[in-house]
Design a protein around this nucleic acid. Structure first.
Lengths: 132, 132
DNA sequence: CCTGATCTACGAAACTCTTCGTTGAAAATA
DNA sequence: TATTTTCAACGAAGAGTTTCGTAGATCAGG
């Protein structure tokens, strides 16, 4: 079973994925326009990164048009889960409660966020993974 | 005010910090012994990393003995908070509930963990940061 | 005192990440 | 058609990370 597992995206790659998740399939120009607004990233920098991401399997590339169209290969949730589980293992000894404690600390979480978290715990306790 | 802020530890640096947190102030030999058990890290590799970490301000070094004694400069919680907040911003749009959802997904959290998380939410809702 | 073990310091190699300039092809425009 | 714009490809530089070998000092045992 040749299950191919894309590697963890780096910081700059994650930025690009965020644009792709938000905009859907996009050209390099699209992504660059979105990123250049906030950061001063150059066009060829974005191009190079997206080429690398295609090689890594983080994105798919449609080359049928002259301006290639890229799309994220994994949904946000999958990537987020990979990242948070990695951090959980590396820094929290696998303890979600410790992670949550630090995530909440020093920030004002909205009331609706807290409510949502409670509901999530309820579901989870009943053996229901709210996602999987 | 010259508030000095240590940088985020890298993956290998975090491994070392974990040992220092667990063992308390330790020599390079101590840390190496702990790490070599799991990984095959070489002695001078650990030494070099710890020297770098001292230069970065991640650890303090007591040079009074021949075998220098290193200790972590920040408590686990501080470092963990830094790391999780960074991830929160970079990958979760700052939403703790999304982070929690992915942290729980695909893992079996123990009943006591879930209870603990509920209590934490209670405290937090009352405006009490359980840590700060 | 000599020898071997231990320890720090130094330097450098291999690797990854991020950046961007340049080139040449293709398309749009004038 | 001639010029300008748009695009992918390539290479390479610079920074940061991780690895370890070697050298030289210090200490302990014989």
């Amino acid at each position: 079973m040749p299950r191919f597992k894309p590697p963890r995206p780096t910081a700059a790659e994650l930025e690009i994925l965020r644009v792709l998740w938000e905009r859907g399939p996009s050209t390099v120009r699209d992504v660059h326009a979105a990123l250049a607004r906030e950061r001063g990233t150059g066009y060829t920098t974005v191009l190079k990164l997206m080429q690398i991401m295609a090689a890594k399997g983080l994105v798919e590339r449609d080359e049928s048009a002259r301006a290639h169209v890229y799309k994220a290969r994994r949904a946000p949730g999958q990537t987020q889960r990979q990242l948070v589980h990695d951090l959980l293992d590396r820094a929290f000894g696998g303890s979600p409660s410790k992670l949550m404690m630090q995530a909440l600390s020093g920030r004002k979480a909205s009331a609706s966020e807290i409510t949502e978290m409670r509901q999530m715990l309820d579901k989870f306790e009943k053996g229901k993974d709210p996602l999987a």
